[in-house]
Design a protein around this nucleic acid. Structure first.
Length: 525
RNA sequence: GCCCCUCUAGCUCAAUGGUUAGAGCAGUGGACUUUUAAUCCAUUGGUUCAGGGUUCGAGUCCCUGGGGGGGCACCA
């Protein structure tokens, strides 16, 4: 806080007229510079009249949504005595001489302001004529409807709450330029209903997840973003540095290893919704930072987390949009409607590959056989890869694009699943699933490997692959192994990509539509 | 990193290689007391992303660079 000296702040002293630019030059024309100059001049004029164009607060009595809910059914031509105070942004102005109609919008609705010269008086009416599209205003008045039945507030007193000195985008077409929409998300949100809707849906999904999980006794936790080792997934990390400790740190690429430490600690059911960071490409499905929900449940296995996955996503769709029917985009550019309330398909990865190639595959097969099959299907193979990794590559090349309706792909090879428990019926596979919808991976879960001796061996295989040049492979996390040595109960774990769930339920085809500020190259100013 | 597309007024968009780059909205001036993207009359506003080049002539064609989009690669 500054010292409470009375009088205007030093920052208010600067005026348009103190600028070097000749006013005549700046006030002519209507480019951006001229428009801003005109509006800045209005600020000067208001201050000289003793009006603060940026007052500190406004006490509204109702929101526009509540106003419509309460009075939306009034007959046309109704005048009431009901006094209200509303606040919002001026989106449209219709001036018909001694009567001005303004469309005011607040967070959840729009209502018309009916401003009559005879009601507010000549002086106030002239001031209102100085309003610009985009200004924030507060209005005191009574509830009425026009002859045509438009719900309105008949304004008795109007207060400028904040002057917009930059003009709004096109009042009808809004903003369409993607560059501007993503860089200036504030402008996108002001004018594009669709953008506001998408982020509302995202919020409802996350709220729904929390409700479902709280209802099942999960505890929400927060674990470190700065990691000494970037584990829990195969991805390239962002690297940063801590000055005081003088050490390299990584931004997390997964939540997994810390959350499972908490299960060791006896918390039994934990989840975290958090940002993770992967130093990889940007696309319609990838942003370098994105939001993951991971949960871990003691005494559960992969079957339990499959059930939770289906419930979480279907319930979120219902909570966010009122229906379990979603539009799924196919890789071929088409789309189809799918009801998430229908049972979701389950198929083993090896069976999907066999379905697509006509050849039975299994990680126990000699790697040469699988290399030959990969070659037949144009899948290039790294010589370091074993049979399991090649099967995964074959799956991605031949089967993944066909998985439009929700499908749990199960039984991933051990080689590509260093933290998952081996299948109780097949030592070459794991008790694992990945959920695909619209050929996109949305979730990943498994029965957690809790044998510290086996986990060490798996980590050592990861370390060996990393040392051999595979930057995305993992390392031996000694502290995690120490935790496992204390005893991790049988545990089921799950990770869900929240951005992709939001894309699915909002019905959009780009991750940038559900991330408020997607990663972009810096703008040149 | 590679390939394709794109960039024109504050916003949304026009403009066969050929006058001085045009519209709508926003803005400005005027009319109007029930409008609904109000309407009507008048009107201001341009480094056509930047820099080169070809040409008598470039917003338009070519090259280089930049932003964005899409695809590929990368990506449990």
């Amino acid at each position: 806080m500054g010292r409470g000296k009375a009088g205007p702040s030093q920052y208010c002293q600067r005026t348009v007229s103190s600028d070097d630019t000749p006013l005549d030059d700046i006030h002519s024309g209507s480019g951006l510079v001229a428009e801003k100059a005109k509006r800045l001049q209005k600020l000067d004029d208001l201050r000289h009249q003793g009006t603060n164009p940026y007052p500190y607060r406004f006490d509204r009595t109702t929101t526009l949504g509540a106003l419509r809910k309460e009075h939306g059914t009034l007959e046309p031509g109704t005048e009431t005595e009901i006094q209200v105070a509303v606040a919002g942004r001026v989106m449209l102005l219709r001036d018909s001489g001694k009567l001005i109609f303004a469309t005011m919008r607040d967070r959840d609705d729009e209502v018309q302001l009916f401003i009559s010269k005879a009601v507010v008086g000549d002086e106030a009416f002239d001031a209102i004529k100085g309003l610009d599209l985009g200004d924030w205003v507060g209005a005191h008045g009574t509830v009425m409807t026009t002859r045509k039945g438009e719900l309105s507030v008949k304004v008795e007193r109007l207060e400028l709450l904040s002057k917009a000195v930059r003009p709004m985008p096109d009042k009808w077409h809004g903003l369409t330029d993607t560059d501007t929409r993503f860089r200036q998300r504030y402008a996108d949100l002001i004018v594009n209903d669709e953008a506001r809707k998408n982020f509302r849906v995202r919020h409802e999904i996350i709220a729904s997840f929390r409700r479902t999980l709280h209802g099942r006794g999960y505890i929400e936790v927060e674990t470190p973003v700065l990691h000494v080792e970037a584990g829990g997934a195969h991805a390239r990390p962002f690297i940063t540095h801590h000055n005081t400790l003088d050490m390299q740190l990584y931004l997390r690429i997964a939540l997994e290893l810390h959350l499972k430490r908490l299960i060791v600690g006896g918390m039994e059911r934990v989840f975290e919704i958090g940002r993770i960071f992967r130093n990889e490409g940007i696309s319609t499905r990838h942003n370098p930072e994105f939001t993951m929900m991971e949960l871990y449940q003691a005494f559960a296995d992969v079957e339990d987390v499959i059930e939770i996955t289906e419930t979480l996503i279907t319930q979120a769709a219902i909570d966010a949009t009122g229906t379990s029917v979603v539009t799924v985009f196919r890789p071929d550019g088409g789309s189809e409607e799918i009801d998430l309330a229908q049972p979701w398909r389950r198929a083993r990865m090896i069976d999907l590959v066999e379905e697509a190639t006509g050849v039975a595959v299994h990680p126990s097969q000699p790697v040469e056989d699988l290399r030959a099959l990969a070659a037949q299907h144009g899948v290039s193979v790294n010589p370091r890869w074993g049979s399991g990794k090649i099967i995964e590559e074959l799956f991605e090349a031949t089967a993944e694009h066909t998985l439009i309706a929700p499908t749990f792909v199960t039984g991933h090879p051990v080689e590509i699943s260093p933290l998952a428990r081996v299948d109780r019926n097949d030592p070459h596979l794991t008790e694992r699933f990945e959920l695909f919808v619209g050929a996109r991976e949305l979730a990943n879960g498994y029965s957690e490997l809790n044998d510290p001796v086996e986990q060490r061996l798996r980590f050592e295989d990861e370390q060996a692959a990393k040392d051999a040049g595979d930057a995305e492979r993992g390392t031996v996390d000694e502290d995690y192994l120490r935790a496992l040595e204390y005893g991790l109960p049988p545990t089921g774990g799950l990770g869900i990509g929240m951005d992709r769930v939001a894309m699915l339920i909002a019905g959009v085809n780009s991750i940038k539509e559900v991330i408020l500020f997607p990663t972009l190259r810096p703008e040149a100013f």
